[in-house]
């Protein structure tokens, strides 16, 4: 007998707990990635502004670093949230990526992209590269595992001399190049991520969409310029 199309009430509907159901749904997951992404954007923007203090001189930078250290528990809370955001961001995107792969088991022999940009197609790779960099970055400047000698840098006020640390770090062209490359991937990640998050969080519409995608591109390349200006300035001797 010919089969009638099944009615959807027979297909699984997910958890009856609204929160869990939300977290299990595709849009829910996307929103989680988006919200953590926004948090990360805010962080890297703040971080950039802090770093740019290098142009104001040694005193400013070191004072700022000491101020942050002085926050104590608040700093640790901030770090915990940051770590959680990164972990959630990554875990959920990997989940999504796996689901998306399963949704297209048989690939096209010939696929011809019409709209997707290199940045949008490589989000997971740019993200993972950024992650690798972040780990190295933490090992270098935060935990100073790679460069234990940084621990002993002190300025005339006996504060930890973050300013010198940055200059020493970036005076090595290889490190700077690696840093610039990582920031490039971060910018690529954001050039899609910024407009993407506006869409994901439901703020996009026909009037603002052009503005948002251009804005996203501008924003991410500004971030790129901001971060990369530091090693460049150090290498060309603008900052000593």
């Amino acid at each position: 007998m010919p089969s009638a199309t099944a009615s959807p009430t027979q297909t699984k509907r997910g958890s009856s707990n609204p929160f869990i159901a939300f977290c299990q749904s595709s849009i829910g997951k996307k929103i989680i990635v988006g919200v953590t992404g926004v948090y990360l954007i805010v962080f890297i923007t703040g971080h950039l502004l802090g770093n740019l203090e290098i142009y104001l001189g040694q005193d400013h930078v070191n004072a700022y670093a000491q101020f942050l250290q002085g926050l104590g528990p608040i700093l640790w809370l901030e770090r915990a949230i940051l770590i959680a955001a990164v972990v959630i961001h990554i875990v959920v995107t990997i989940q999504l990526a796996a689901e998306n792969r399963a949704a297209r088991p048989q690939k096209y022999a010939h696929y011809n992209y019409q709209a997707a940009k290199p940045s949008s197609r490589t989000m997971i790779y740019s993200g993972l590269l950024v992650l690798c960099f972040v780990i190295y970055h933490l090992l270098q400047f935060t935990f100073m595992t790679t460069n234990p000698e940084y621990r002993h840098l002190e300025d005339h006020l006996h504060r930890h001399d973050v300013y010198r640390m940055m200059i020493l770090g970036f005076q090595q062209p290889i490190i700077s190049l690696f840093y610039a490359a990582a920031i490039f991937f971060l910018a690529a990640h954001l050039s899609h991520g910024f407009s993407s998050v506006v869409q994901t969080l439901g703020i996009n519409n026909q009037k603002v969409s052009g503005f948002v995608s251009n804005g996203g591109r501008w924003f991410s390349w500004l971030i790129f310029a901001g971060y990369v200006s530091i090693p460049v300035s150090i290498l060309i001797g603008l900052i000593k």
Binding site: P8, T11, K12, R13, G14, A21, Q24, S25, S26, I27, K29, K30, L96, E99, N100, A102, A103, R104, Y113, Q114, A115, A116, K117, S120, R121, M123, H192, S195, S196, Q199, T200
Partner: peptide, 22 residues
């Protein structure tokens, strides 16, 4: 209901490539 049915049927999620629109 529409979104959860869509998920249950095995469609992927939107990563904002806009291939669909194109």
């Amino acid at each position: 209901n529409m979104v959860r049915t869509m998920d249950a049927l095995g469609f992927g999620s939107c990563t904002n490539h806009y291939e669909c629109e194109a």
